[in-house]
Nucleic acid binder design. Structure first.
Lengths: 352, 352
DNA sequence: TCAATGCAAAGATACCGATTTTTTCATTTT
DNA sequence: AAAATGAAAAAATCGGTATCTTTGCATTGA
């Protein structure tokens, strides 16, 4: 059974292809009789358009825009962006233009300002990164909905939003998972170190807070006797950090494991290798398969990483967007990203 | 900068579009001078064809074929096939026909016979599942290479083969990973039960053997004092199996953990729940996120599953094949599938 | 020597399946 | 009766592919 084309439908209904196109897309200037004739044929057959031919014929230029947190190289959001760019490259046959607006995730005004610029750029479709404040997010979403601009959400969604697609991660669950792995790995440990490395972002991201919440929840339920020892460090003050870590490990010489909810666990691992080589092995768990962390997993100084495929997320998000808006294909909306555990044994197979 | 079309190149080189097309595809009947003129332009610009327009214009029907092990519902290969079918659906805009040839994985003659039928069907491109015997596989591959038929490999590859794409898993590493997880989870256990459930396949698949090899290798290196207790069971003899398990757990009352290298760990979990409800918790690890296993992870009777995304593998393999042969896009050849650990905390995010 | 033939080279064009613009024709309206 | 309007057919187009046709040149035979 060969595929049915618009031309075939036109013949069956005894009208021209133009008329069929008008009916299919609900455009105006159709007589009731023509509409009925075409509709009858459409009801009988199962017409699936050739999406690629359709995109080719419409010969449009699409202006995509994204609004996303500012970032350093190789950070989470840098890699989401990289995935989006990979997707743009893959779909370069369609005429897609792309503009990105970056905001300071700790400054609502910055988001508002960038959102204004984004709207001024009259985008055809938008990808939105997370902002803590619901009302501010809501402001942008409402405007887009009014302008009938489709949007994709990465990382935060609310039931009242109607995105074309949503890619997110359940950071609470991810924290629980981290707790399970670390307790298992350090069987019977009485103390777990929780390293909080504060970098450029003066406060922890919502993701990090959720991970910690999930972690503490699991610990309370499954291992309430274990003591969680916090250590707050600033990456800016290298000497201060070194000193603080030395003091910490001397004071807590019975510590056998630790974790961090952002990508900076390699800092701890490298400190231990360099400054305290004779210290007993400390089981470390961290987040994100950035190069510095992967190196530490290979040499055994970090035991576990939890990865959430930011680049794949970016790529998939863009692909969903293209499929939905350029190719008019139906899409699944909610996509929860896998929480993956990486160790020396399987990390080589993790490709973002 | 708008995209450069064949028409633009023709104008620049002062020839017709037909000539440009001939040069690009290395067809015959081109004069040296025309070739030089076009080549000069091509060297200067970076021409990227519109792959979708190309596929549309060539208006071909593609006969894809696959040769794969016979299987029961929901088994590994059933899900690979499901992924392939999902891919076919996704690419239904291209005129792709599909035929599958299933062989008995324990009977080389069956493979040879199906391969013959496959070759007789004059396929445009082929997806090949694994067969233990290299020479038999080699026979098919050689014939395909002679006929210039592109092929994709799933699961087994050899350096001398030149597939369009390869999707595989490192089962040895996967076994090592299993060993690490189970030793960690059952800290200090002196015995580990290794359940070998033999089903329809009278012998274990190569994958299973490799997993076991990796497992034993890790145990020898990292925990040589741990005893590995094998228990061979046949799924056909339900009563016999029940009896054997009862005897086993009574005799080895100090066993606290066990694993299986195929998808049947749920059998053990369900036995323990039903027949020995008062027995202390036994940490179980198994393979493949089939429904029966996922249920056991949810209720806590199975602690870990190692998953390898068969459906995704099938889908990606088909996608690579379509991209390479129908759309003439460059593809990465080697794809090693991620080894993923599933627990109660993250299994809900695992979608094949 | 020159028309007839053959053949390679390259231009012109129809086509893929859709969209979009233009043209045609039948009704209304003024 | 001329102008305006609406519906639907016809045709051009998107970026390539493939076929058909024409062109130019070398070879052949009268």
């Amino acid at each position: 059974m060969a595929k049915i084309r618009i031309k075939d439908i036109a013949e069956m209904a005894g009208v021209s292809v133009g008329t069929v196109d008008r009916v299919i897309h609900g455009r105006k200037n159709i007589s009731k009789s023509a509409l009925e004739k075409v509709q009858k044929v459409l009801d009988e057959i199962n017409y699936v358009p050739n999406h690629y031919a359709s995109a080719l014929a419409s010969n449009k230029t699409y202006h995509f825009a994204a609004i996303m947190p500012m970032h350093e190289v190789d950070s989470y959001w840098a890699r989401v962006e990289k995935g989006i760019e990979e997707g743009l490259h893959r779909y370069s046959d369609f005429n897609i233009q792309y503009e990105i607006f970056r905001y300071d995730p700790f400054d609502s005004n910055s988001f508002v300002e960038q959102a204004r610029l984004l709207l001024e750029s009259k985008p055809f479709a938008v990808i939105i990164g997370p902002i803590f404040n619901f009302n501010i997010m809501k402001g942008l979403v409402t405007e887009l909905e009014e302008m009938q601009v489709p949007y994709a959400l990465i990382d935060s969604n609310w039931p009242e939003f109607k995105p074309v697609t949503f890619y997110g991660q359940d950071s609470l669950r991810s924290g629980e998972f981290a707790a399970r792995i670390i307790t298992m790995a350090s069987a019977g440990a009485k103390k777990i170190a929780l390293f909080k490395l504060m970098g450029e972002g003066r406060v922890a991201s919502r993701q990090q807070l959720n991970r910690e919440e999930g972690f503490r929840k699991y610990m309370k339920e499954h291992s309430p006797q274990t003591e969680i020892v916090d250590l707050i460090l600033s990456v800016y003050d290298k000497e201060g950090m070194k000193h603080a870590l030395k003091t910490f490990f001397t004071k807590n010489s019975d510590i056998t494991c630790g974790l961090s909810f952002n990508s900076s666990i390699n800092t701890i691992a490298n400190f231990l290798k360099k400054e305290m080589p004779k210290h007993q092995h400390i089981t470390l768990l961290g987040y994100d398969a950035i190069d510095a962390n992967v190196t530490c997993v290979h040499d055994g100084s970090v035991d576990f990483l939890i990865a959430q495929h930011p680049q794949k997320q970016g790529l998939n998000c863009l692909r969903s967007m293209v499929n939905a808006t350029v190719l008019h294909m139906k899409q699944k909306v909610e996509h929860y990203v896998a929480i993956e555990l990486l160790t020396k044994e399987n990390i080589d197979f993790y490709k973002d």
